[in-house]
């Protein structure tokens, strides 16, 4: 019951925040100096025929997109449509009434799966690394892992991807692993959302920062947990060292990791905006950047909406996960 109240409250807060984000986006897209029609003008040319076509188009767009309505009405109408999961047509294809919905449905899974794969890599590698560093505290292994995680945390994913790809490419060439090691996995794909293999490098590059964060947090948190009395109890039961760490010390140590995971996963989803074009992934990020460059206002608004809402929902899910991992945490602790 308490939990239900918490979830409802948070969902309401998310709705309000997302509404703010969408309204702000609407407002900003209105003041954009070079809008869609300005760009069209460049394309049609300044002759009479071009002007006529442009005026005709502008008239049509006014009708389809209700451009003359006041801002609040536009935002309100948008939300009514969101309820039905219908985002309407885009500027580019005004005659396909469900174009944006189709685009979102097709591209959102790409972005989400790359982000989740990255987070999966981050956890699968970061957690053992962190535990290992904690158990080998102040040895060269520890120092190496700590510095590596520093690099992972500081260097942005696109730079990391480039450097890793180059490294592997040189490595592969020099050591004659040749064809058995498919270079295509590492190279930036030439075209399209080919196969899952194309997601390997982006996922690694996107996962590096959270992996580093996870490893650092796990390390310090395992060290702290190992000092606690219940670890002594576990030892008093006769459990082996590894079992004590894995069964008893690890789970309480995960709590601070979950705290960093929410923002990190959010960052990975929004960060898709930066990396998808580079990797030629057909996800929400490249959709957003394309829409921005073409000043396709409905598409910009919807991709902003989806990205912002996803980030906030991810944070809610992570908070719920928090309560699963640590039963002492109750909804009221999370505010």
């Amino acid at each position: 019951m308490e939990l239900l109240k918490f979830v409802v409250k948070r969902l309401l807060a998310i709705v309000v925040s997302v509404a703010c984000v969408v309204a702000l986006t609407f407002a900003m897209m209105r003041v954009v100096p070079s809008d869609y029609f300005a760009q069209m003008e460049l394309r049609y040319g300044a002759n009479t025929a071009g002007k006529q076509m442009l005026d005709q188009q502008r008239e049509e767009y006014r009708r389809i997109f209700h451009l003359d309505d006041p801002l609040w009405k536009q935002v309100g109408r948008y939300f009514v449509r969101v309820m039905k999961w219908d985002f309407g047509p885009s500027y580019k294809e005004p005659n396909e009434p469900h174009k944006i919905t189709e685009l979102v449905n097709a591209k959102f899974p790409v972005t989400l799966s790359v982000a989740l794969a990255g987070m999966g890599i981050a956890l699968l590698v970061g957690v053992p690394l962190g535990v290992f560093a904690a158990l080998r505290r102040n040895t060269w292994v520890d120092y190496l892992l700590t510095s590596a995680s520093m690099v992972g945390q500081v260097v942005p994913p696109y730079v990391l991807a480039v450097l890793l790809t180059l490294f592997f490419a040189v490595f592969v060439r020099n050591f004659q692993i040749g064809d058995s090691f498919p270079l295509a996995w590492l190279a930036l794909p030439s075209e399209g959302w080919g196969s899952w293999k194309n997601a390997v490098m982006p996922a690694i590059a996107l996962g590096a920062a959270p992996m580093a964060a996870v490893a650092r947090y796990i390390r310090s948190s395992v060290l702290e947990t190992l000092d606690q009395d219940f670890v002594r109890t576990a030892l008093s039961k006769g459990l082996g060292r590894l079992r004590v760490v894995v069964r008893h010390a690890l789970r309480p140590s995960l709590v601070p990791v979950v705290t960093v995971m929410g923002p990190q996963l959010g960052y990975m989803i929004v960060g898709s905006v930066l990396v998808e074009d580079l990797f030629r992934l057909q996800g929400l990020g490249s959709l957003f950047v394309g829409a921005i460059n073409e000043r396709d206002v409905p598409l910009v608004i919807t991709s902003t909406f989806i990205l912002a809402a996803t980030v906030m929902l991810v944070n809610l899910v992570v908070d719920l996960l928090y309560m699963v991992i640590d039963p002492r945490i109750r909804p009221k602790d999370l505010g």
Binding site: S17, C20, V21, L24, T25, M28, M29, V31, V32, P33, S34, G266, V270, G271, V273, L274, F288, V289, I292, R295, V300, T304, L307, A308, V311, M312
Partner: peptide, 21 residues
């Protein structure tokens, strides 16, 4: 709080589009 709720990269992009070229 509102500023932090808005994903920073998105805000940055929207601002850069809104600033005259």
């Amino acid at each position: 709080d509102v500023m932090f709720a808005f994903p920073q990269i998105l805000l940055l992009i929207l601002l850069l589009v809104a600033i005259p070229d």
